[in-house]
Each structure stands twice: as structure tokens, then as C-alpha cells.
Design a protein around this nucleic acid. Sequence first.
DNA 1: CGCCAGGCCTGCACGC
DNA 2: TGCGTGCAGGCCTGGC
Length: 271
Amino acid sequence: MPELPEVETTRRGLVPFVVNQRIATAIVRNHSLRLPVPRSLPRLVAGATIAAVGRRGKYLLFDCGPGTLILHLGMSGRLWIVDHGTPPEPHDHFDLVLDSGTVVRLRDPRRFGLVLWGNGDPLRHTLLAGIGPEPFDAAFNGDWLYRVTRNRTAAIKLVLMDGHVVAGIGNIYANEALFHAGVNPRQAAQRMGPGRCDLLADKIRETLELAIGAGGSSLRDYVGSDGVAGSFQSQFMVYDRAGEPCHRCGTPIKGIRQGQRSTFYCPRCQR
DNA sequence: CGCCAGGCCTGCACGC
DNA sequence: TGCGTGCAGGCCTGGC
């Protein structure tokens, strides 16, 4: 599901509908997400005005003044805008009802998502405190990547997907960024030299930027909050292309398993 | 039927 | 004894 580009697309789609809007109430139809939705949530958000919608990694942060509504879309979560009175469908677990008559609705069939409340600085919340630098932050660069990969014997792809190393990169964009950097996903992280770390950091940013520009990738469940499907999947170079010819050199794309996840790469372009 | 799917936390075993 | 590390398992539904 949604990785950084999809969450960022969602965030941008929500902003015009929710910023400076007052929350009338919240409706929790199913408390059993990856962690229980707090029983007190409706009481906490009712009457608050949403000052901003932020993002940290794949977490969405609704700034409600003294506290923050924290949402994570998990694997199959989708957040979008419906009119007040729109009947909920199966897996519509959570509504944020605004005074304006707009409803922010969470649908998440697999229920790996999260709806939480954070008091004070949301970045100090246990689940957010340890997240690595944002890819578009100055703190994320080749130097950082070089530093955090020292002594890491794990494959570079697994390290990229570790949220403590860099925020927001999941399976799709790890695969895609490694292709664009010409790095073999099985490469031991510690064997990446400074030059390759620089290149990889650049390609991560580039890949994510392009995906955000395309409104993210629409696979299975994901559609942007404006209801418009993203189109970046048409630009996938390797993801889900096992056996198909590399767009650059024609060599069949390889599909392997790493850490119980699917990896795709071009054995010729990625060394 | 079994396997796979965009995430990520926890717990365990291991080596230093 | 403690740490970093790296796996496996778990949470769920739906599609093939």
C-alpha cells in the first residue's frame, strides 16, 4: 500500500478540505485496527480546529492544537473525502466529521492501519520518535546513507526499507530507486562506497518526487483523496515486472525474495 | 485450497 | 550482561 508518495498525495488532497475546519465529531465503527483506536478519540477531537495536516514518513498528522490525530494507512488503507450522509461501506472504520459537512473517511480492509491520538509534540510519540530523516530533508544525503550503512551486513534493499534509516520508503520505491541508481538490491549495505551512497540518495529523492508528481501509484486499493487515481505505476521500471524485458537494456527482470518481500531488479543494469 | 499483496511492530536467537 | 542485528511471526481481507 501506500508509501511516502501515496501518503503525501493524500495529504495534499486533504488540505483544502480540512485546514482551518472545525471537527464536529469522529465516528469509530471498528476499534480493532493494528492497535486499538482509543475509546476517548471522539471526545478528544470534537470541537478542535485542524490547523494543518502534516506528514512524517507514512504517518499523517492532523494538528488539532493541543494534540494531534495520527493516522497510518497500513497496507490497504485509503483516506478520502465524502459528503455528510454518505452511507459507509464495508471496511469504512473511521470518519472525521467536519462542521462544513465534509467527512474524511478511512477505509482499510486489512486493518493494518492506525488511528491514534498524540498529546503535545507528535514527533515524540513512541511510534514516530525513531523514524529516520525525511528523504527531502537536508539531513538525508549520501553522507548519512554512508554513515548508517557502515557495519550493516544486510542487503541494501532491506536497509532502505528500514524506517529508522530513511522515512517512507516501502517495497515499491526501494525497488525502483535501486534500479535508477544501478545498485543490485542484494548488495551488502556496508559495501556501498561514498559515491554510490551519494547517487542512491539522489535517486531515492528523484524517484519519490516523480511519483508524487504523478499522484502516486494506484495499485489495488489506493486512490488519492480527491478520488483521482495516481499514475506512477505506468513508470515502474522493475516493480512487479518479473520476466518482462528491462526498459533500458531488454534483459528479463528478475524476481527474488528478500526478508519475505518481493524484490525485482535488472541483473544487467544493477550491479 | 494455498499463496500473494503497498507496513511495521514485537519477540527471539545469535554473535561480539 | 548487554548491545546491535536479523529473522520470523503476527495483525487482517481479498484476489488469483
